[in-house]
């Protein structure tokens, strides 16, 4: 990057060499690791993207979490519990990756609950029926897989490694959702209607998960050049449509897009344009559940304050009492 006038010229030369070495690493598809030199823009872009991704996982616990107490069977309840716990885990893997770039956890949490950093707009839609749990698994986790599988090759090592772990777990999420829907469509007419209704409500917001169209995505070019991102928003959206259409046919539901049809020349599906003004509205905070999600997250954080303080006090007391670490059973590192 550029150096200021006051910087000695030797620093400028050294920085240029570092920049060249970084560019070579990216060109040769080598991973960038935490202690490597990297341009400020690369670091900032990564922190922003990884933090938003982490926040999305954390907020993403809420829409489905609402159904844990109301799941129709013990089996579904156990599955939903495990899924929501995974979302928390994904958030923590990602916060851990962001921290390798010098971000502070307390600061990241603060940025989320003060609204200074965003999370995925998809989690601002409500889950009025149990079919929503299934459709979220199928669409939202399916879209997440489309987005995330290429991120396993992201140029930043800790992010790529976190994505590998996450992708392994997302497959369970998508499959449990689809299986849930298969069970419902084999049920009563009312259950089939619930599934179709949920499909109708989630389809367009799911397509919006891939972000604005390529011509309107200001950060995409830099992220692609740095190989943080591997595919454009439109390419990933198109893959998701191609992947989902046969699954919808098998399930016997209709995707709510009159323009959706197979294009034999392109070998892909043509489909309609999402209402981008809706995406902008939801991102700006005016979605159906934005306020509710933020309030819940903030309240959870505030309600947990005494637990964090008590644990800190307990740790301080234990540390003052005896030799460090002697209370763990597997003390020897061998």
């Amino acid at each position: 990057m550029t150096t200021t006038d006051s910087a000695p010229s030797a620093t400028g030369g050294a920085e240029q060499e570092l920049q060249e070495r970084f560019d070579t690493s990216i060109a040769k598809d080598r991973r960038i690791e935490p202690r490597d030199w990297m341009p400020d823009g690369y670091r900032k872009t990564l922190v922003r993207q990884i933090a938003q991704h982490a926040h999305s996982e954390i907020i993403g616990m809420q829409p489905e979490g609402e159904w844990i107490t109301r799941a129709p069977s013990l089996r579904r309840k156990a599955i939903l519990f495990a899924k929501v716990q995974d979302e928390a885990g994904h958030g923590l893997y990602l916060y851990s990756a962001a921290e390798t770039l010098g971000a502070e956890r307390t600061e990241l949490t603060e940025r989320l609950i003060s609204g200074r950093q965003k999370y995925s707009s998809i989690f601002n839609y409500p889950t009025p029926t149990f079919a929503d749990v299934g459709v979220i698994g199928w669409f939202v986790d399916g879209a997440a897989i489309c987005n995330q599988v290429p991120l396993c090759r992201s140029s930043y090592g800790p992010y790529a490694r976190a994505m590998v772990r996450i992708c392994k777990e997302e497959s369970f999420h998508q499959r449990q959702g689809y299986e849930l829907l298969m069970t419902m469509v084999r049920g009563t007419e009312e259950q089939r209607r619930m599934v179709q209704d949920a499909v109708d409500r989630w389809w367009w917001p799911s397509l919006m998960m891939f972000g604005p169209p390529d011509g309107d995505s200001p950060n995409s070019a830099a992220s692609m050049a740095w190989k943080i991102k591997r595919h454009t928003n439109d390419e990933l959206r198109s893959r998701f449509v191609d992947m989902t259409v046969p699954q919808a046919e098998r399930l016997g539901v209709t995707l709510p897009d009159p323009e959706l049809r197979w294009n034999p020349e392109r070998g892909r599906h043509d489909f309609g344009t999402p209402d981008w003004s809706e995406l902008q509205r939801v991102i700006k905070g005016d979605g159906p559940c934005n306020a509710e999600r933020m309030t819940r997250r903030r309240t959870a954080h505030e309600d947990g304050a005494w637990v964090r303080e008590a644990a800190t006090a307990h740790a301080a007391k234990q540390a003052a009492r005896g030799p460090r670490g002697s209370h763990t059973e597997e003390g020897t590192a061998a």
Partner: peptide, 18 residues
């Protein structure tokens, strides 16, 4: 990876869960 914990013991149990 990494995690935050108040002490060693909590770090171990959180690592198991995470």
């Amino acid at each position: 990876g990494s995690l935050h914990a108040a002490d060693d013991r909590m770090a171990l149990t959180h690592a198991r869960d995470l």
